[in-house]
């Protein structure tokens, strides 16, 4: 299913994530509230896909389903061919808040994630050290996370997800809590790192520029109950640089996505209440 959608990666590559007509509702005071109304999407091997949607559109909920925290009411989710939730830890994860344990050093936090992913103690230690060196973060290895700046914490958090062995990475508004300047720096930093080893990524964001800069494909989510209302293949080649921002094509796509999002927000009042 949906194979024709993964046009960003080579068409024959296996799908790393398949979400097929997934619906979810929560019990509320008056009946049930539909959060996801049949969402279908896919991420191919080595593909960077962004999920763009108004706040409260169930983006984070969808990631929770992929991570196996909850089961959908209906529909099917396959992560690297396995049903979501059948086994813990099918995908690597980078949340909006860095989620670093304050009583572990930077190195210790990375080691813990690798241990949970099944690495041996020695292996985890070696991989964490090498990863910190590769990203030029080794001087922070023995620091506690709370002495680092927000941007630096997110670098550690990203490295932690990057070093985890799962083929799929879930990034949940990773730069949402950063100031604009740090955010731009982090986007470029992530872009250059990702282009080196091309993991499969599902990025949740509400920043149009971020989605355009980073992704191969952008999916626009409607407001709740969420469905995919727009799909857009990003035409820019790789490696990309921030100079894209000044190209006219970038501006046109940005406007197009903006209109799609605005329709969603405006339409939710009349059509879906």
């Amino acid at each position: 299913m949906n194979r024709k959608r993964s046009n960003g990666a080579s068409p024959s590559a296996p799908l790393v994530l398949e979400v097929d007509r997934v619906a979810l509702s929560y019990p509320q005071a008056a009946g049930r509230t539909q959060v996801l109304g049949g969402v279908s999407l896919s991420v191919g091997a080595g593909e960077f896909v962004s999920l763009l949607g108004p706040s409260g559109s169930g983006k984070t909920t969808l990631l929770g389903l992929v991570g196996g925290l909850e089961r959908p009411d209906s529909g099917r989710i396959l992560v690297a061919g396995e049903p979501a939730g059948s086994r813990p830890g099918l995908a690597a994860y980078m949340p909006q808040q860095a989620a670093l344990l304050p009583w572990r050093t930077v190195q210790g936090n990375i080691e813990l994630a690798l241990r949970i992913a099944g690495r041996s103690r020695e292996e985890a230690r070696r991989l964490a050290r090498e990863g910190l060196e590769r990203l030029g973060l080794e001087r922070h290895a023995r620091s506690y996370p709370q002495v680092l700046s927000g941007g630096m914490q997110q670098r550690v958090s990203f490295l932690r997800a990057l070093l985890s062995p799962q083929p799929l990475m879930l990034l949940d508004e990773p730069f949402g809590a950063l100031d604009a300047l740090t955010r731009q720096e982090m986007q470029e930093w992530l872009l250059s790192l990702w282009e080196q080893d091309r993991r499969s990524v599902l990025l949740v964001t509400h920043s149009i520029e971020e989605a355009l800069l980073l992704s191969d494909r952008i999916l626009v989510l409607s407001s709740a109950p969420a469905t995919i209302v727009r799909e857009l293949a990003v035409p820019f080649g790789r490696p990309r640089r921030r100079q894209l921002w000044s190209e006219s094509a970038f501006g046109e796509l940005k406007e197009e996505l903006y209109q799609a999002l605005r329709r969603e927000r405006g339409g939710s009042g009349e059509g879906r209440a």
């Binding site: 929770g64 991570g67 925290l69 086994r87 813990p88 099918l90 808040q97 989620a99 994630a113 949970i116």
Partner: peptide, 13 residues
């Protein structure tokens, strides 16, 4: 709870 959610997402038992 944010740390709890993170650990559950990456498969901590």
């Amino acid at each position: 709870p944010a740390l709890e959610r993170y650990l559950r997402m990456i498969g901590a038992g």
